[in-house]
Amino acid sequence: MTNLKVHSAAPADPEGDLASLRGDCARMAPHWAPPEKIVSPPVSPSRIHGVTVPARSARLLEDMPDYGN
């Protein structure tokens, strides 16, 4: 599915078909480029307010070696 060649400026079928849809997508692909990676600085724990974790979830994470122990 890497056929990015476009042979016509407009689809011949006004209802559209798979070939015209692929052509439209190929023409629009440059406009859908992802933005540059935005890196946010870490937030200080003192600025985090109002976050609550249920005790059951906290115990579950404490028992996981990757997170708690």
Rank of each mutant, 00 (worst) to 15 (best):
T2Q: 12
N3W: 10
N3T: 13
K5P: 00
K5T: 15
V6S: 08
H7L: 02
S8K: 07
A9R: 10
A9H: 07
A10E: 13
A10K: 09
A10Q: 11
P11S: 15
P11H: 11
A12G: 14
E15K: 00
E15V: 06
D17M: 12
D17R: 15
A19H: 07
S20C: 01
S20Q: 01
L21T: 06
G23W: 01
D24V: 02
C25E: 05
C25S: 11
A26W: 00
A26P: 00
R27L: 06
R27A: 08
M28C: 08
A29H: 07
P30W: 00
P30N: 03
P30H: 01
W32G: 04
W32C: 06
P34I: 04
P35I: 00
K37D: 14
K37N: 13
K37V: 05
K37G: 11
I38C: 13
I38G: 14
V39C: 11
V39M: 09
V39W: 13
S40L: 12
P41C: 10
P41D: 15
P41S: 14
V43C: 07
V43H: 03
S44H: 09
P45G: 00
P45R: 01
S46W: 06
S46R: 11
S46N: 08
R47Y: 07
R47C: 08
H49C: 10
G50A: 09
V51G: 13
T52E: 12
V53L: 01
V53D: 01
P54F: 05
P54H: 12
A55C: 11
R56G: 15
S57Q: 08
S57M: 12
S57P: 04
S57L: 14
S57R: 03
S57K: 04
A58S: 09
A58W: 00
R59P: 02
L60C: 14
L60K: 14
L61D: 07
L61R: 03
L61I: 01
L61C: 03
E62W: 07
E62F: 06
E62Y: 08
E62G: 13
E62C: 11
D63V: 05
D63Y: 01
D63S: 14
M64S: 10
M64P: 02
M64I: 09
M64K: 07
M64Y: 03
D66I: 01
D66T: 01
D66F: 02
Y67T: 04
G68Q: 02
G68E: 03
N69S: 13
